[in-house]
Write a protein that binds this DNA or RNA. Sequence first.
DNA 1: AGACCCTATCGTAAATTTACGATGGTAAAA
DNA 2: TTTTACCATCGTAAATTTACGATAGGGTCT
Lengths: 101, 101
Amino acid sequence: MKRSSKQIEYTEDTEALANFAKALGHPTRIVILKHLENQSCCFTGDLVDVLPLAQSTVSQHLKELKSAGLIQGELKPPKIKYCINQENWNIAKTLFQQFFD
Amino acid sequence: MKRSSKQIEYTEDTEALANFAKALGHPTRIVILKHLENQSCCFTGDLVDVLPLAQSTVSQHLKELKSAGLIQGELKPPKIKYCINQENWNIAKTLFQQFFD
DNA sequence: AGACCCTATCGTAAATTTACGATGGTAAAA
DNA sequence: TTTTACCATCGTAAATTTACGATAGGGTCT
């Protein structure tokens, strides 16, 4: 943004929905989430094998999904097990449902 | 992207869903779409009045929503009437529904 | 302690996004 | 025909996103 601009105000729901949508706004992240829906859980390495991307890139996408609240990581040495964050997943689901009327 | 990279392949649905999600990935565009859902249609000027953004910025957001297929513009001189593109709206709705299981 | 996995983070580069003001184009109105 | 209204597009700047390789860190196993 050129001008730092008068920090626009949005409702919480609008902000939340846009946030979730943004996290879903990349095909790689859709693939990751679909994978997690099937397997219920998986490790970073599994995804690196499936996706034609560098390990660091996959890790970065996972980080974004985590910061959006859609997934969570559980330490399972020496691996990390990622699962859908069911609570936030349901919130997102509801927001999209409401949005699409 | 640093390396032009081996053009990753995604399924059509994955690509389409990510595309719609990306279009929804900004709160201003959510506000615009909610507005269009209520009014069914509206003019660019109406949105400029509602949103604390420059006219050119609003126009840019509208362009993105249009190129994502979520809205369509109809010439209604001297104004332009924007409406939800119901066909693609339904496609998006279905994709999100399927995705959220 | 040392070697080995697995994964996160850092540094970096290119592309894209978001925002603005200024300009241009189209169609009605004077 | 000139003016006016409405809106898209251009040019530009800053921020963010996407991608990579390299490095670092946490935990096992030897």
